[in-house]
Amino acid sequence: MRTLIRYLPLALLAAAWEAAARLHLVSSLALPPLTDVIGSWIELIRDGELLVNGLASLYRAAVGLALAVVVGALLGVMMAWFRPANTLLSPLVEIFYPLPKSALIPVTVIWLGFGDGSKILLIFLGCMLPVTIGAFNGARGSEQVLVWSARSMGASRLRMLWDVVLPSAMPELLNGIRTALALSFILLVSSELIVAQKGFGYLIGSLGANGSYDAMYAVVLTVAFLGFAADRLYLALTRRALAWRYDT
């Protein structure tokens, strides 16, 4: 009941959408009725188009993001713990961090063409720096006394990085990865909208070009929902991983 009241505004918006389209308050071209959109969605599922393109997109996002997390976390911890790495890398991070990542779309296409490679590279490059900065801030914030404790109990320097610095950095690192997750969806969809032969963005673009707007809406809503669901799932996992931070 409570959830019902909580999400009632969304239901109201959906109802308003349906009504506006059915009563021809807006052109049904610009806003096909929600029920039609749902119909097209079922159609898209049935002929497998949504699945094929969706899997292509998710594969790109997953590989790019995984690379970004591994490389980004390593770079961040190194920057926090080795002064030379910090001196060399921090100016580069400072320059590239504010770069609107979407500007890299044409370059990745020049380098790797229209297929998976260019999207993966784009997502990797775009998502790496938020992870790096999260790992850097987290690792730098690890308490001196914890490091000392581990060392006095016989941990080597490398062991100490793994046992103390990485777990200390975890909250901020996980936060950086959350930013990267959101960014990966944005980059994925925009690069696929601009140039692609398959994927969600491609499907949206080609359906739009054919004028099948109800199907286009169906894909747009699917992508939006997937992004939302990925974030919620990630949050739930994070809460479990960081259970030690919360008392009771």
């Binding site: 914890l146 006095s152 030690w244």
Partner: peptide
């Protein structure tokens, strides 16, 4: 630093991501 000299800090310096047992086990593992 070395395990011949154990230290106890004012603000405990426990590893917050380890349980009581995990904290005590850590030095023994090392």
């Amino acid at each position: 630093p070395g395990p011949d000299r154990g230290i106890v800090f004012q603000h405990f310096a426990l590893f917050p991501w380890k349980t009581v047992r995990g904290n005590i086990l850590y030095g023994l593992e090392r």
